[in-house]
Design a protein around this nucleic acid. Structure first.
Lengths: 217, 217
DNA sequence: TTCCATTTGTTCGTATGTATG
DNA sequence: CCATACATACGAACAAATGGA
């Protein structure tokens, strides 16, 4: 009843544009093609293109500037609703939010992970545990690992939230590793492996506790 | 820098229509004039009328039915937000995210609340505990109360996240209260008062535990 | 600084499709 | 089947803002 059999052209274009944004083809701050270019690409009228753009502007993903162009200002619904500019937020707040979210996500992942999730998480873990990595590389892989866990939590809202701040986590994790003279590669690996095992065993309490140890490391 | 730039015709029409709705000229369920009539009345093209109507449909104040007409379904923005229709999956995810975030926020608030925060939280609590409220009003005040707690957590990221899902929370909380035949106004008040006391006493563990009881209610 | 090409913003007219009663 | 009303789409024109020459 509620499903329009025919999807309007502007809706189809909205889908295409969202794909570009979510896959990272058009990262934050990207100036997207002009309306004229999109008109040509999609072979529709400028009005139809504008209708699609208007939807995304309304949703808070795009922002248009007269005489200039249209820019990507958020990559998902949740980022769009954030009133604050993430890059102006206090370092300490990001660190705190990170720890809380990672605890929540590990808890959920342990409860809800599928076998397929386990495969993905283990793959990320093995990549992360490459001893040849520099600290910078390790920080990136660390984020990848936690994002896999976030996916296993099967809650798209929490995943969006975590991904929104993950961009800013790199600097945080990297600095942490560098400044902490006691940072130990092997201990860190050990903890992350334990986390995987807890999720595998579906021990959500343990998973949460291990994340707390990782974060306060 | 915010100079009063020219107002578009469609924006002017939006304002006229809102006036009609808010003053009660067009009460709920009113079938408003057809696009053709509005075109004539405002002396603009049908496109311009449609653009204005589209804004109000997006805002949730109007609803249009092809082949029939356009109807008033809410008379202010607050009502409009109540009409958020959630599918089953989103519903579950929001409920889950809500519980986790409220636990996190209560924990942080208990640790970091200032005396000024306490005043604000207590005021929201007292408002919430008005026994004359209907369930709908109670649901709204409930959200206000939790947002005050979120502010006391002093983490702008977590606050943003919570506020961004709070628009969806009304339906969630309202349904919960309505469907739960065991829902007890007094018990609910008691728990919320206990939560306030725990935050006041800065007992973060207890605050978190109470939220868990509230959510699983 | 002014000027200009580019780009988005607004508005109109028109045609055709789709849903309702 | 038909009249009505909304839905979608196209084309065109001019206005206004922007950034750079």
């Amino acid at each position: 009843m509620k499903k329009p059999r025919r999807v309007s052209l502007s809706t189809q274009i909205v889908e295409e544009l969202i794909k570009k944004i979510e896959t990272g083809d058009w990262p934050l701050q990207t100036k997207i093609p002009t309306e004229a270019q999109l008109t040509e690409q999609f072979e529709v009228s400028r009005n139809t293109v504008r209708e699609a753009l208007q939807s995304l502007i309304q949703a808070g993903l795009l922002e248009s500037k007269a005489g200039d162009g249209t820019y990507v200002i958020a990559t998902n619904k949740f980022e769009a609703n954030m009133y604050h500019e993430l890059d102006k937020v206090e370092y300490q707040e990001i660190a705190e939010a990170r720890q809380l979210l990672e605890k929540n996500l590990a808890f959920l992942a342990a409860k809800k992970r599928t076998d397929a999730d386990l495969v993905a998480i283990e793959a990320a873990l093995n990549t992360r545990n490459n001893p040849e990595f520099t600290l910078a590389e390790l920080a990136l892989k660390d984020i990848d690992y936690h994002i896999e866990i976030a996916k296993a939590a099967h809650n798209s809202i929490m995943l969006d939230v975590y991904q929104s701040i993950s961009t800013y986590l790199f600097q945080l994790i990297f600095d942490h590793m560098q400044q902490d003279v006691t940072f130990n590669h092997d201990d860190s690996q050990q903890l992350h492996s334990e986390l995987f095992e807890a999720i595998k065993a579906q021990d959500s309490q343990l998973a949460e506790a291990i994340v707390a140890r990782i974060s306060s490391y």
